[in-house]
Write a protein that binds this DNA or RNA. Structure first.
Length: 477
DNA sequence: CGCTTTTGACCGGCGC
DNA sequence: GCGCCGGTCAAAAGCG
């Protein structure tokens, strides 16, 4: 251990005073000197430990010199990893804090939404009450006991069956949607259901006349409502969180791509079916048409799409009975068709057998931006709080102070968007579904026996380039 | 072996 | 009444 060359090196590098190797102080001096030469920064701790252990302090110093290159390299690497570890820990803490902050924001958003929704309900009911009174005055028909349009929209077709007073099998979930809900006229029975009305309102000739005059075109509402989702995807089927079983495939006329028929298999007897077909003009566009209402609880991943389809179907059934203008003329304020579903986008399909509402996820523009453009046409797209194309990266309430600092105009924009989102459950549901479809629903439901994703195995992956462009443009086909 | 997919047959609505 | 077309059924095949 007492290697003369090492000691010489030590002297050359660090001229030290004379040392008495046999005195206590001398040992310490050598140790300190050795540490100063051989140890990189931060290595003093080890030396102190060595000193604390006592004994062969001299040996320790020499040892460090002996293994100079290897030890220092190892120490440097150790230090590097230490730094890396501490950096990771800091990053983890930062992410944890951000997660906590986002969660609290989400909670706040949910709370404010609930509060606004609860405030909205009485207003809607009051408005409907006024409509009924106005209609009572006009027709003289007692409408007591009839549910509100909102109630019907909340309960969907099942509620409509109750209004009918008749029973239908499970498959007729949407075929039961025969009581036409007109948001500006209250409930208008269809020609078919007038004869089975239990409240006797159909006996009123005025109402019958009004109904016959409004149930155009071609009594679409007598048929089943469908919700069609258009999404740009290379996958054979969009992932919506449900389990489906294919029961048929047909070549549709005018489309080289076959149409596939699926049935929900999450519960026995679930009446929900869907058709999947590629758009003839643009084969990258996948058209998924849903029909019916699930008779079983849905996994969270499937809820968004199911809520959207039922909400859209309810919207269709409530607004499609008269004309596309009735969408704009919605009087109960429940929908905001004048904002999102204006007459340029809302057209009733004359070619299909069923009234169908289409949620178009293929357009490049984003509904929030459309909304903003309409609400604030003077605001340049560049001034929008969201990117004009692509998903909004943050919701208005999550944008934070950096948005608000853009001034009162921006704040007004944000407020109008917030109001629109929170007061329109259909929009909220559609937005949720759009985001879900874009993010890609979890594939947990595709477990044993699940056929959510066809055998081809291709499905939407978060961040996949095949994802549909974010847009929830509503159009009625 | 059980479940899913495939595919031709069948049925009902609608237009001519 | 007939034919077309969309939708569904059900037996056979495929698959894990």
């Amino acid at each position: 251990m007492d290697r003369p060359q090492d000691m010489a090196l030590l002297r050359l590098r660090n001229p030290i005073k004379e040392v008495d190797f046999f005195s206590q102080n001398g040992r310490q001096d050598v140790t300190e000197a050795g540490a100063g030469v051989a140890s990189p920064k931060g290595h003093e701790e080890e030396e102190e430990n060595a000193l604390a252990r006592g004994g062969a302090s001299v040996n320790t110093g020499l040892y460090l010199l002996t293994v100079n290159s290897q030890a220092s390299q190892a120490v440097v690497e150790e230090e590097k990893s230490k730094h890396k570890f501490s950096a990771l820990r800091i990053e983890l803490n930062r992410v944890r804090d951000e997660n906590r902050r986002l969660r609290s924001m989400l909670d706040q958003l949910t709370e404010s939404y609930t509060a606004l929704h609860s405030q909205l309900l009485p207003a809607v009911q009051q408005k409907e009450h006024e409509i009924y009174r106005w209609q009572d005055g006009k027709t003289g028909v007692a409408r007591q006991g009839e549910p509100s349009a909102h109630q019907i929209m909340e309960h969907g077709p099942a509620r409509m069956r109750m209004i009918h007073g008749n029973s239908e099998d499970g498959d007729g979930e949407h075929s039961s949607s025969l009581n036409i809900i007109s948001s500006d006229r209250g409930i208008i029975p269809s020609a078919e259901t007038q004869h089975s009305q239990v409240d006797g309102s159909s006996e009123n000739p005025n109402l019958t006349q009004e109904t016959s005059s409004t149930a155009t075109p071609s009594d679409l509402s007598n048929r089943r409502a469908r919700v069609s989702v258009r999404a740009r995807s290379d996958a054979p089927m969009i992932s919506d969180g449900c389990q489906w079983r294919k029961y048929g495939q047909k070549m549709a006329k005018g489309n080289p791509c076959p149409r596939a028929y699926y049935r929900c298999t999450m519960a026995t007897g679930c009446p929900v079916r869907k058709q999947v077909q590629r758009y003839a003009d643009d084969k990258t566009v996948l058209i998924t048409t849903y029909e019916g209402k699930h008779n079983h609880p849905l996994p969270p991943a499937a809820k968004a799409m199911a809520n959207t389809t039922s909400a859209a179907a309810a919207m269709l059934l409530s607004g499609s009975t008269t004309s596309k203008d009735s969408l704009v003329a919605s009087a109960n304020g429940f929908l905001h068709p004048h904002i999102l579903y204006d007459s340029t986008m809302a057209t009733l399909s004359a070619s299909t057998s069923f009234p169908t509402i289409t949620l178009d996820l293929t357009k490049s523009a984003n509904p929030i931006q459309q909304l903003l453009q309409r609400a604030h046409p003077t605001v340049s797209p560049l001034q929008m709080p969201f990117p004009i194309y692509g998903l909004p990266q943050k919701l208005p309430s999550m944008v934070g102070p950096q948005t608000l600092q853009h001034g009162p105009r921006q704040q007004a924009v944000v407020e109008s968007v917030t109001a629109a989102i929170t007061t329109d459950p259909n929009f909220t549901a559609a937005l949720t579904a759009a985001i879900t479809s874009i993010m890609g629903a979890p594939t947990s439901s595709t477990g044993a026996g699940g056929s959510n994703v066809p055998s081809a195995g291709a499905h939407m992956v978060p961040g996949s380039p095949q994802l549909p462009k974010p847009c929830t443009t509503f159009s009625l086909n």
